[in-house]
């Protein structure tokens, strides 16, 4: 049982993580590097002269981008371990798990780990003003936990009370509010910040759908393989 979870999750997480890393390098990294030019003070907007929106950005950095690829694959393997473990529990309780169903699992994972915390604690472009990182991590963790429980209740609760509890769990962190900075001091143009948030969510959603699909696929394939060899 454990080896089936581990094998499926490693395959799904590494594959989806690699694709996620490449998508991030193409779509998110240029926006991040652009923002860093403002974070470092190399570019300043609203100065005397207008600033080009198309500066020359540093190209592929083997060390930095290589580490990003490794850490994205690791992060997505973490996501996949949690997802496949929950899939195994769901299957034991009668749910069907395959690549198609995995798409919905992926969307639920995206909502849980990326969209729910990001709705109030918006994806941070470098240089953005923010509250204490420990406070934000606490809020992030609590929001991910409540959203995750809510997703499970929506999928498997099956009665009105569980849907109501799910709604409360989804809304509560945002009604309470996330830790916010005392003042706004971000030097990055709003256009870059908005594009960064949109790209982070878009790439995150695509990558999460892949995690779910792969997790469902490998979970089913590993199960069939184990049955065939038994």
């Amino acid at each position: 049982m454990f080896s089936r979870i581990l094998t499926s999750a490693l395959f799904a997480g590494a594959a989806a993580g690699l694709i996620a890393a490449l998508l991030q390098l193409v779509f998110v990294q240029p926006v991040l590097l652009h923002a860093e030019l403002y974070e470092s003070g190399e570019l300043v907007h609203f100065g005397a002269e207008s600033v080009s929106a198309h500066p020359t950005l540093p190209g592929f950095d083997a060390m930095r981008d290589g580490l990003s690829i490794v850490f994205t694959m690791l992060t997505y393997t973490g996501y996949a371990l949690v997802m496949v473990a929950l899939m195994s529990i769901a299957e034991e309780r009668g749910a069907k798990i395959n690549a198609r169903v995995g798409i919905i699992w992926g969307l639920a994972g995206f909502i849980t780990f990326h969209f729910a915390p990001g709705l109030t604690l918006a994806p941070e472009v470098p240089g953005v003003a923010a509250a204490d990182v420990g406070d934000r991590q606490l809020w992030w963790t609590a929001t991910v936990a409540t959203a995750g429980i809510a997703m499970w209740l929506i999928a498997f609760g099956g009665n009105k009370i569980s849907y109501a509890i799910a709604a409360v769990l989804l809304l509560a962190p945002h009604l309470i509010g996330a830790p916010e900075p005392d003042s706004f001091s971000g030097p990055v143009p709003t256009e870059i910040g908005a594009l960064f948030a949109a790209r982070a969510f878009g790439v995150g959603m695509a990558a999460w759908v892949l995690v779910g699909t792969f997790a469902g696929y490998f979970w089913q394939a590993e199960g069939e393989r184990a049955e065939a060899s038994a």
Partner: peptide
Amino acid sequence: DAAHDVRHASGFPCH
């Protein structure tokens, strides 16, 4: 430092 870009892109609180 190693995970910096990933944290920003994946929505983890950074810095």
